[in-house]
């Protein structure tokens, strides 16, 4: 219910990390007060292993996201992309390895709720909105505010908060549907609503699992613009199968395959990589 204090610096943490370099491309240090991002890294996954009944979904996965970066994750079905997001958001606990948010928050020990409150937002692969509530109410619930029971019992929207919701409605182009129940929206609109909810939450790190699935070309293009405008101020991790979309937005691409990082670099670089061509692009 309370945000986790972020001041305690964990001792004995080796900033040089393991195999991959920890030198994230620090595109900015606009991280919010409270989150310690001295090394320009907002997220560090190190040697993460996850297995489901003996099946290894992630194997020694290491990955670093820089502050303000927009990272795309690609990889064939079943590569472990969603599982990785589950680890970051506390839904799945890794069998070994570490996951740090900033320098000090150990994600493997935090609950889903604490992680969300600490500033990691997530869009699920299957668009999930509160179907019985109106579009406006969906955004209202997502907004960054005190989320305890007592606060909710007494909550009233301030003018400022209403303006913010209107602004986001404008951004996601759902102004016309503000009073419609979210369950009646089209697939693409639900995707936008969920993105809008993330905007309301204004997390420092956004995890977006296949955000443009089911969108029209125009909508996809618009989403690309939106994400690009979000980067720098926020850090984004986007999982997408749509290569055109990835090409438009990505600074940096990571290829996952069978629970491991296969390659990392610009899209051109990874597309030229032999192994990537073999397992993924040239199937």
């Amino acid at each position: 219910m309370k945000t986790v204090p972020c001041s305690a610096v964990i001792d004995g943490f080796d900033p040089t990390g393991g195999g991959l370099t920890r030198d994230a491309i620090g595109l900015g240090r606009v991280a919010e007060k409270g989150l310690d991002v001295r090394h320009g890294t907002i997220l560090s996954l190190e040697d993460i292993n996850v297995s489901f009944d003996g099946f290894k979904a992630l194997t020694n996965l290491s990955l670093y996201i820089g502050v303000g970066e927009l990272r795309c994750i690609i990889g064939p079905n079943g590569a472990g992309k969603t599982t990785m997001m589950d680890v970051i958001t506390g839904k799945t606990r890794p069998t070994s390895g570490s996951a740090w948010f900033g320098e000090t928050l150990d994600l493997t020990r935090m609950s889903e709720v604490d992680i969300a409150q600490a500033g990691i937002g997530r869009k699920l692969q299957k668009p999930t909105v509160f179907e019985a509530l109106s579009v406006f109410e969906n955004l209202e619930l997502a907004q960054k505010t005190d989320k305890s029971v007592w606060a909710s019992l007494r909550a009233r929207l301030s003018g400022e908060q209403k303006d913010r919701i209107d602004e986001v409605l404008e951004t996601i182009r759902l102004g016309q549907s503000r009073h419609r129940p979210a369950g009646l929206l089209s697939h693409g609109q639900k995707q936008f609503l969920e993105i809008g909810m993330l905007l309301m939450q204004s997390p420092q790190l956004l995890l977006l699992d296949e955000p443009v699935a089911g969108m029209t070309d125009a909508e996809t293009e618009f989403t690309a613009e939106l994400f690009k405008s979000l980067a720098r101020k926020h850090s984004l991790m986007v999982v997408e199968h749509d290569m055109g979309f990835v090409e438009t937005i990505a600074d940096h691409v990571t290829v996952l395959h069978q629970g491991q990082v296969l390659a990392e670099g610009s899209l051109q670089q990874v597309q030229a990589d032999e192994r990537v061509i073999e397992v993924y692009l040239g199937r």
Binding site: S111, V113, A116, Q117, K147, Q201
Partner: peptide, 12 residues
């Protein structure tokens, strides 16, 4: 309707 989503929004 969507307990998971609610938790990812930061509600316990």
């Amino acid at each position: 309707d969507a307990e998971n989503r609610l938790m990812f929004c930061g509600y316990d």
